[in-house]
């Protein structure tokens, strides 16, 4: 069992992911914005973060760079779970690994079972 923080602006989707991960015996928290997520990380201290990059106001990339400025959060794994196409991902030319990203999942191709498996 691990502590997982879902950063997902779509509340309905977040509820779906949360129930799947709770069923896999994880403790799960949820934030809808990058700003809210920074406070949640401080309080909830997750082992893993599941992050949607495409968010209003501060986007997921801003969250990742902000997150990486907290030295005591090094070691928290980040799984990107997004509706952004892989081609757009490549065009962003970001060094994801340096930002703590361990996996990229494209939402339309990822089943709940696959999400559960990736987190486990």
């Amino acid at each position: 069992m691990s502590r997982i923080l879902i950063i997902e602006p779509d509340v309905v989707l977040a509820r779906l992911y949360k129930s799947a991960l709770v069923a896999s015996r994880h403790e799960v928290g949820h934030s809808t914005t990058a700003q809210e997520a920074l406070h949640a990380v401080e309080k909830f201290r997750p082992d893993t973060i599941i992050l949607e990059i495409d968010m209003p106001n501060h986007n997921g990339l801003e969250f990742l760079y902000e997150f990486s400025s907290y030295s005591d959060w090094v070691g928290i794994d980040i799984i990107i779970h997004t509706s952004l196409r892989p081609s757009l991902f490549q065009r962003m030319k970001v060094s994801w690994q340096h930002l703590g990203v361990i996996e990229y999942l494209y939402k339309p191709d990822t089943t709940l079972a696959a999400l559960q498996q990736t987190v486990a």
Binding site: L61, E62, L88, R91
Partner: peptide, 9 residues
């Protein structure tokens, strides 16, 4: 997002 990535770069 592409501009954000370039900006951080």
């Amino acid at each position: 997002l592409v501009r954000t990535g370039a900006g951080y770069d």
